[in-house]
């Protein structure tokens, strides 16, 4: 059947609602799980470092978003690759106050966008932790990541604070406007 099983299952399910597969990546302590829980309207006060991964389905503008949050610790990063297949959108989360690791997070992102499975897949970067005084502005981070050099995909950077939820909805709106409508 090869990749056929996937389409068989798609047909079996009957496209009652459109589904998007979204992977949430970024360094450890960037705030991925907090963002995921915020999206699912869950409690964000007791979040511990993710050793494995979390999956949640979120309804947004008539769609079902299946969001995959994979742990960002260095030893887990090699496993990211296994979660990229059939992905519709990459959300990349950055701790805007962790300047020391800007270079590291930039390297990780550039490796990701070079993955075959993510070819042409849109990227939404969340410049998280904007509530902290020492946080860098989103524009500065975009520059550091060389986002403007991306030619083969849509991208967006969104300043946010996952803990309070500020800016998160703006990012989701961008997804609905630009990704969902284009997916057939």
């Amino acid at each position: 059947l090869g990749n056929g099983l996937f389409s068989v299952v798609e047909r079996l399910k009957g496209a009652t609602e459109r589904e998007l597969r979204i992977v949430l990546l970024g360094l450890d302590n960037a705030g991925k799980t907090t963002l995921l829980k915020k999206l699912a309207s869950e409690d964000v006060r007791t979040i511990t470092p993710t050793q494995g991964f979390n999956v949640k389905s979120v309804a947004a503008s008539g769609m079902k978003l299946n969001v995959w949050d994979i742990g960002g610790q260095r030893k887990i990063r090699p496993f990211w690759k296994k979660y990229l297949e059939n992905t519709d959108l990459l959300i990349y989360v950055i701790d805007s106050a962790d300047k020391k690791r800007f270079e590291e997070t930039g390297l990780e992102l550039s490796e990701l966008v070079a993955e075959e499975d993510l070819k042409g897949v849109p990227v939404l970067v969340f410049a998280n932790k904007q509530d902290l005084a020492i946080a860098s502005p989103a524009s500065e981070i975009a520059e550091g990541l060389n986002l403007h050099t991306y030619r083969d995909r849509q991208w967006q950077i969104q300043a946010c604070c996952a803990l309070s939820g500020e800016g998160v909805q703006d990012g989701m709106s961008w997804i609905c406007r630009n990704i969902a409508n284009k997916k057939k």
Partner: peptide, 30 residues
């Protein structure tokens, strides 16, 4: 034939959806 069968309205019946659950689980992690 299989694809077409899966797209048919018959495939969407509740009874069959139950039977096909183990197949559907291949693409539905949760």
């Amino acid at each position: 034939q299989f694809f077409e069968a899966c797209s048919s309205p018959y495939a969407k019946s509740k009874a069959l959806q139950g039977v096909f659950q183990p197949v559907l689980a291949t693409d539905d992690f949760q």
